[in-house]
């Protein structure tokens, strides 16, 4: 290509790559460092000088999983995030279908603008009234309160993202199924869902990861130790007064694993979908 002959200067290419990869390694370093530290014996975590390689041990992980409440946090997070994700995806699928296949019902435009506007809602101000509401419902320390919160917080983005995706699926599919006598819900879950899975994967990952990372609702609504989720539990390890750094490091790695694994497998797709989805509004 002409592009190639004009653009390739071996020296400039090398400088660009070294600079780019170097900067990215600096950017990735803090987490890589956490991973390295998490495999060190406690005595070698606290060194006064920089040491890249030290003794390798799994002690911190053993202590985290056997001698700390972290497994409970992990279970709570997995349950809450999984349930919230599934429900959010199902509801947003039905809603997005409603908006996608009915272009001109009264109020459509207003409702859509409201959905988009909700994405900009300052969630943080909800925490005082929501605490009061869940308190009067007797739902403080009830994981269901957190599940409901995560569904609601994620719905707007999921609906908006899926709407864009469903709009690209031809309506002939619906029409054919309808002639065969399928109901609308059957069409959504038996006909559209199998075709729409790439969009659903993106939305599900978004919902799961943002629930997994969430801190403020979990901090406020789940106050007893046996109900805490991973972020709040982990934050408890570096409290105001004492910090168990060896536990913090191992817990940090374990808390990052789910997102890391998801993104490793789906990086190319997720990176383009999520960045495009966020800015598309």
């Amino acid at each position: 290509m002409a592009n190639q002959s004009i653009n390739s200067h071996p020296v400039r290419d090398l400088v660009t790559v070294v600079l780019g990869v170097g900067l990215l390694l600096i950017l990735a370093f803090p987490f890589i460092w956490v991973v390295l530290i998490s495999f060190r014996p406690e005595s070698e975590i606290f060194t006064r000088t920089f040491q890249l390689i030290t003794t390798f041990t799994l002690d911190n992980y053993a202590m985290l999983l056997e001698g700390s409440p972290f497994p409970t946090y992990l279970r709570n997070s997995l349950v809450v995030c999984t349930v919230a994700t599934i429900v959010a995806v199902v509801i947003s699928m039905v809603t997005a279908y409603g908006f996608s296949r009915n272009r001109r019902f009264r109020g459509r435009q207003t409702l859509l603008i409201m959905v988009i506007a909700t994405q900009l809602f300052p969630f943080v101000i909800l925490i005082t009234p929501l605490y009061a509401t869940f308190f009067s419902l007797g739902m403080i320390n009830n994981p269901l309160a957190l599940v409901i919160s995560y569904i609601a917080v994620n719905l707007p983005f999921c609906i908006y993202m899926l709407l864009g995706y469903l709009d690209t699926i031809p309506r002939d599919l619906d029409d054919a199924a309808r002639i065969d006598g399928a109901t609308t819900l059957q069409i959504i879950f038996r006909v559209i869902l199998p075709v729409a899975w790439p969009g659903i994967v993106t939305v599900a990952v978004y919902a799961f990861v943002s629930a997994w990372d969430e801190f403020l609702f979990a901090l406020t609504l789940m106050t007893s130790d046996e109900n805490k989720t991973v972020p709040v539990g982990l934050a408890g390890f570096f409290g105001e007064y004492t910090t168990q750094w060896n536990l913090v490091m191992a817990a940090s790695v374990v808390s990052t694993l789910p997102t890391l694994i998801i993104f490793m497998f789906l990086q190319r797709k997720l990176v383009s979908d999520l960045s495009a989805g966020a800015v598309k509004t």
Binding site: L24, L27, F31, I32, W33, D213, V248, T256, Q267
Partner: peptide, 23 residues
């Protein structure tokens, strides 16, 4: 390589980001 490295801070939960930097 570029995508993998740039993703590292993004997949890190904010709580972990604070823990890492505090250390």
């Amino acid at each position: 390589l570029v995508r993998s490295l740039i993703l590292v801070p993004w997949v890190t939960p904010p709580v972990v980001a604070v823990a890492a930097w505090k250390w």
